[in-house]
Design a protein around this nucleic acid. Structure first.
Lengths: 205, 205
DNA sequence: CACCTGATGTGAACGATGTCAACATCCGAC
DNA sequence: GTCGGATGTTGACATCGTTCACATCAGGTG
C-alpha cells in the first residue's frame, strides 16, 4: 500500500503537492493572492517551509497552480450555468450566452479571492494551462451563436469584446468601484450591451 | 523662508510627504503595487523608514496616495484626448466619447504599474478622493451625448456599461490575457460594442 | 531673549516572510 | 541487502512592515 487508511502520518507525506495546493487555495479564497503565504500553507499541512520547494520553484509557482485551479472552478461554474438551459433554438443559444457571462460575474463576486488569483499575471515560465478553461466556455457559447446565424460581426472578432465587458463588470463590481447594491441591473445592462453589439436583431428588455 | 533654495538638506526635510509620494509613485510606475516598498521609498529620499509613519498610517496609506495621483494622471490624459477634438456637432460628441475610452485603455497599456495602483481596492478609511477623476471625465462625455440626444438608453444606466467595457479591455490587454499584437482592433471592437449598445443609429466601421 | 511644547526624524528592535544550503530520512530498483 | 534519488527538516540569511524610546528642530509664550 502506498498510503495507510488510518492517516498514520507517513514520514513522507502522502501527496504533499496536492495538499499544499489545496491549502494555498483555501488561503487564496479568503485573502486573495496577498493572503497566500508559502510558510502559512506549509504550516497548515504540518510540514516545514522548505519542503514546498521540492514541488514548486517559488511562491509564485504555487500561486500559478492555485490560479489554474481557480480558472477551472470558474469554467465549471460557467458550464453548469449553460447546462441548465435546455433547447436548441436560437433563443436558447442566446440565453446560454448570457448565462455564461452571468456565471462569470457571479463567480467573481462570490469568490473574489479565487477570481483575483485566477487572472493574476504570471511569468510565462510559470504558466499552468487548465483544461476546462473559461475562455473555452465562452468560445463554445459563441460557436453556438454562429451556428444559429445570430452573430452580427465576424466570428473571429467576437471573443474579445464579450470577454472584455464581462471581465470589466466582474472586476469593477468585485472591487467595489461600482455600487454592489446595483449589482443586478449593472450585470444585465452589461449583458444587454454585449448582445446589442455582437448579435443580430436587438432584443431590448 | 521655510525652505532653503540651495537644497542644504535641512535636518527636517522640507516636504517629506510630497517626496515620499513621488518616490513611491516612481516605484509603482516600474513594479506596480508590489514594487512599492515603504523602506525603499524612504531609502530613495534619504530618510529613515520610520520617518514615513509621521505622514502615513501604513504602507497601504502611502499606496492610497499614489493611487490617487495615478487616477489624476489618467483623468488628465482622458481630458487631453477629448480636448483635441473640436466642434460641437453630435459627431464630435461621439468622437470625444470614443477618445475618452481610447485614452483610458492606452494609459493602462503605457503605465501598467500606475494603472494597477490606481484601481487597487483599498479600505474606506484610507481612501483618498482625487479631483480630476476618471469617472468624472466619463460622466462629462456621457452628458454631452445626452445633450446631443444620442443616448439610446436612460442616462442613469449609461456609466456602468461604458466603464465596464473600457476597463475590461484595459485589464485584459494590460495583463497579456488578450494578445497585445491585436491591440488596436480589440480596442476599436470594444468601442464599437459600447457605441452600439449605448448610442442611437449604429455606425459600423 | 530663554524656554518649552509639539512636530518631525533617528536608531534599534520585533516578528514575519521568501529563499537557500547542508543534512536526515525513506522508498524502490538492482 | 544495499545504494541512489526523491522527499522532508534544520538552521540561517536578507528583507520587509511596524513600533517604541529617544534626538532634534521650529515657533510661539513668558
Amino acid at each position: 500500500m502506498t498510503a495507510n487508511a488510518t492517516t498514520s502520518r507517513p514520514y513522507h507525506h502522502g501527496d504533499l503537492r496536492r495538499a499544499l495546493v489545496t491549502a494555498a487555495t483555501e488561503l487564496a479564497r479568503s485573502g486573495g493572492s496577498e493572503g497566500v503565504g508559502l510558510r502559512e500553507a506549509a504550516r497548515r499541512v504540518g510540514v516545514s517551509p522548505s519542503a514546498a520547494y521540492r514541488h514548486f520553484p517559488s511562491r509564485d509557482g504555487l500561486l500559478a497552480l492555485v490560479g489554474s485551479e481557480a480558472r477551472e472552478a470558474l469554467a465549471a461554474r460557467m458550464q453548469a450555468a449553460t447546462a441548465e438551459i435546455r433547447g436548441s433554438s436560437g433563443k436558447a443559444a442566446r440565453a446560454r450566452f448570457r448565462a455564461t457571462g452571468r456565471a462569470y460575474i457571479e463567480f467573481a463576486l462570490e469568490e473574489p479571492g479565487l477570481f483575483e488569483v485566477a487572472f493574476r499575471p504570471c511569468p510565462p515560465s510559470l504558466y499552468v494551462p487548465d483544461d476546462p478553461s473559461p475562455y473555452e466556455e465562452l468560445s463554445a457559447a459563441l460557436d453556438a451563436l454562429e451556428r444559429a446565424g445570430l452573430l452580427a460581426i465576424p466570428r473571429l472578432g467576437a471573443e474579445a469584446p464579450a470577454w472584455v465587458a464581462v471581465h470589466g463588470a466582474a472586476v469593477l463590481l468585485g472591487d467595489g468601484l461600482l455600487p454592489r447594491d446595483s449589482r443586478d441591473p449593472i450585470i444585465e445592462a452589461t449583458l444587454d450591451m454585449v448582445a446589442d453589439g455582437l448579435l443580430r436583431s436587438r432584443t431590448r428588455a
